[in-house]
Design a binder for these strands. Structure first.
Lengths: 157, 157
DNA sequence: TGCTACTCGGACAAAACGTGTCCGTGTCAA
DNA sequence: TTGACACGGACACGTTTTGTCCGAGTAGCA
């Protein structure tokens, strides 16, 4: 099982956008994180489609959050980029093969799928409990002020 | 994010092995579930390497559980087939790019990675809480006795 | 005790997915 | 009106996952 690498980029971008006052171009975000500009653009498009960020075109354009960072959870970002489908998909193999359970007698859901779904819900709940604003606040308190100011200035330049 | 499809096969096989008294060949497990025998064999090898099942070669050989099903959790099976590595791997992109945080001032772990790890632990904890024996018991109570008996007979034949 | 048949185990291809890149289109500022 | 900049979707590449095959080893049987 592997989560798309773009998830990490998207989360960091949201944290940066949370602290930026003006729209930030994709190219600038890519240079800041030292990642492929084209590929990061794709992830930002996913965030845009999900309605988490909004793009402004033309000169001095870029991306900005559509709503307050306290209203955006990590789960929102993860699902926007990685998709909402759960990692485990029950294929109902008990209904196949020579000893298949007939569909009409197959009333209760597969216990394996039920536990898997429950685990997936727990995972998502953990991510839903943390907002981008909280992440940004933690970054602010753990990073030396000087570095933060320099980064802000670099973004605006 | 997607979990290996073999995980579902492995779990169902463990449940079947829990109820079987004698070793069951991989070919029989494959036919029972109507899946590719060769590919299922690969998954069973993973379970064997992890020490969950033990193979007996030669005539009337096959696979059996190495210990009581109550001592085998779903997490054991999932990790045996899918691997133990967490789905999210922090690449420390904050240490890259023009505004990189110097390594010596980067003392606290990345907050994003911390939340991701916490969510992963919650997921694994959910799976660790359920044993193969519990799954088998649920299957026993929700499946008509007649079907269970027929399946047992078919396995022994 | 040798043989035979049956079993697993690891090495070998094919396909699907994620990753990475490109250029066209729309939009804002001058 | 013009120009340039930034986004958006369509296009290849690489890697992982999926799927398959044949050889090695072992237990039962004559």
């Amino acid at each position: 099982m592997k989560l798309s690498g773009g998830v990490e980029w998207g989360l960091h971008c949201c944290v940066v956008l949370c602290g930026a006052g003006a729209p930030v171009p994709a190219a600038k975000l890519a240079e800041l994180h030292d990642v492929s500009p084209s590929y990061l653009a794709k992830q930002l498009q996913s965030l845009s489609r999900a309605g988490l960020v909004r793009s402004t075109q033309g000169q001095s354009g870029g991306y900005r959050l559509t709503r307050d960072a306290a209203e955006i959870t990590m789960l929102d970002v993860v699902e926007a980029i990685d998709g909402p489908q759960p990692p485990f998909r029950c294929t109902e193999i008990r209904r196949r093969g020579p000893m298949a359970v007939p569909p009409e007698r197959c009333t209760t859901p597969c216990p394996i799928a039920r536990v898997m779904d429950s685990a997936d819900r727990a995972w998502r709940e953990s991510l839903r409990a943390v907002t981008i604003a909280e992440l940004a606040a933690e970054v602010d308190t753990t990073t030396p002020r000087e570095l933060l100011d320099r980064a802000r200035a670099w973004l605006s330049a």
